[in-house]
Computed example of a mutant assay.
Amino acid sequence: MDEPFHSLSPKIVSVIKNVIKEQSRSKGFLISDHQYQDVLDISDDIYLLSNSHLKSIKDLTELRHFNYLPKNI
Rank of each mutant, 00 (worst) to 15 (best):
P10N: 01
S24Q: 01
Q23D: 13
D44I: 05
H34N: 11
Q35P: 07
L48C: 09
S50P: 06
D2H: 11
R64G: 11
K71D: 15
S32W: 00
D33L: 00
S50M: 13
D45L: 07
D38Y: 06
H6K: 15
L54G: 07
V19L: 15
K17I: 01
T61Y: 15
I57N: 03
D41N: 09
K55P: 01
F66S: 04
S32C: 08
I73Y: 10
L48Q: 02
E22F: 12
N18Y: 10
L48A: 05
V13R: 04
D33Q: 03
Q23C: 08
N67I: 05
Q35H: 15
Y47I: 04
P4S: 12
Q23P: 05
M1S: 06
S56C: 14
P4W: 07
K11R: 13
K55A: 04
Q37R: 09
I57F: 06
S24L: 01
I42L: 00
K55G: 00
I31E: 00
V15P: 02
S7H: 13
D41S: 10
K71S: 14
E22W: 05
P10L: 01
S14N: 14
H34F: 08
K55C: 00
K55Q: 08
S9M: 15
L30Y: 13
N72G: 09
S56A: 10
S9Y: 13
L54A: 03
V39M: 03
S43Q: 01
I12D: 04
D38L: 06
L63Q: 02
E62Q: 15
N51I: 00
V39P: 07
F29C: 05
I73G: 04
H34T: 00
I42Q: 03
I20Y: 11
K27Q: 08
P10F: 03
K17E: 11
V19Y: 06
L69W: 02
Q23T: 13
K21L: 05
S52P: 01
F66R: 02
L69V: 05
I46H: 02
